[in-house]
Structure formats: C-alpha cells, structure tokens
Amino acid sequence: MAKAPKLNSQPQIVTANHLASGDVVYLSAARSWTREIGEAAIAPNAEAAAPLLAFAEAEAKRNVVVAPYLIPVDASVSPPQPVQFRERIRARGPTTVGPTMVGSTMVGSTMVDSIPAGATAAGWTIRAA
C-alpha cells in the first residue's frame, strides 16, 4: 500500500473559529478573517505558512479568533478544497439544523421537508431508511 503524501508538504491555509460568532474563518492575504475559503491566503507548504500561523496566533491572543491552525488544501481547484474530511465538513458549514427546523432538511441553501429516496444533494446520495 502506498503511503499518503506528507500533509506538511502540501499547500496550506490558516483556519480558526471567530470568537464572537463561532464561525469557521480563514486568514486572507490581507491579514483579515473571511468566512470564504476561496479568499484564504495559500502558502505552498507548512514551512512557508509559518508567518501566517504566527499572525493568527497573535490574533488569538487578542481574542479575535480561537485555536488557529494550518490545514492542507488542494490548490489546483478554485476555491481550494481541504484535503482532510473534517476540514471539508467545516468549509461547507454546519451539518445540523437549528431547533426551529426540526423535521426539515437543508439542500444547498433551500430548506425542504423531505427528499425523495435516491435523490442527490451536494454530491451525497440520499437513501430511504
């Protein structure tokens, strides 16, 4: 079995959670925080991303963001896509709905009450229970 490439050698971006809102945010090239992964500053590898991470850690000390860290991304696509499954979930938004939406499902940005068996939404196949 072939070994996976080392994640540190892949392109990297800085992610964190915004302290006030809890939203997933990314550090932009302008050294501001954005909710859009496509606006994130991309470093060619973890070593080159060290100054970005240092800035983000200073922002954490100023209580702007919480727990900044580097994530590897596939920069050959636009917007860049996280390599790790957990980070792909974070980039796409919450996986749960609020208590006022119980019984409904979000498909893209549309709330629907039911999804027909076999339908697809955002690349996922929905199967009847």
Score class of each variant (00 low, 15 high):
M1W: 09
A2I: 09
A2N: 11
A4T: 10
P5L: 05
P5S: 03
L7H: 07
N8W: 03
N8Y: 08
S9G: 14
S9H: 13
S9V: 06
P11G: 06
Q12C: 06
Q12M: 12
Q12P: 06
I13P: 01
A16V: 07
A16G: 06
N17D: 08
N17Q: 14
H18D: 14
L19T: 12
S21L: 05
S21Q: 05
S21T: 15
G22N: 03
G22L: 08
D23I: 00
V24H: 13
V24P: 00
V25H: 03
Y26K: 05
L27E: 02
S28W: 02
S28L: 02
A30D: 14
A30I: 00
R31F: 10
R31S: 11
S32Y: 04
S32F: 00
S32R: 14
R35V: 10
R35I: 10
E36H: 12
E36F: 12
E36R: 13
G38M: 07
E39Q: 14
I42V: 15
A43Q: 06
A43K: 03
N45V: 05
A46M: 06
A49P: 10
A49S: 07
P51H: 04
P51S: 10
P51N: 04
P51A: 07
L52C: 00
F55K: 09
F55Q: 10
A56N: 12
E57S: 11
A60P: 08
R62W: 00
V64F: 10
L70H: 07
P72W: 06
P72I: 08
P72S: 15
V73A: 09
V73Y: 07
D74C: 05
D74E: 09
D74W: 01
A75K: 09
S76F: 00
S76L: 05
V77I: 05
V77R: 12
V77F: 05
S78Y: 07
P79Y: 00
P79R: 03
P79V: 01
V83A: 05
F85H: 13
R86Y: 10
R88G: 02
R92E: 11
R92G: 14
G93H: 01
G93R: 00
G93S: 02
P94I: 01
T95Q: 13
T96Q: 10
V97Q: 03
V97A: 10
V97K: 04
T100E: 05
T100Y: 02
T100K: 02
M101P: 01
V102G: 07
V102H: 04
G103C: 02
G103E: 03
G103T: 02
S104G: 05
T105C: 08
S109N: 15
S109K: 15
T110E: 13
T110G: 01
M111P: 14
M111Q: 11
V112E: 09
S114Q: 13
A119F: 12
T120H: 11
T120P: 05
A122S: 15
W124F: 15
T125V: 14
I126M: 14
R127P: 00
A128E: 15
A129H: 10
A129T: 12
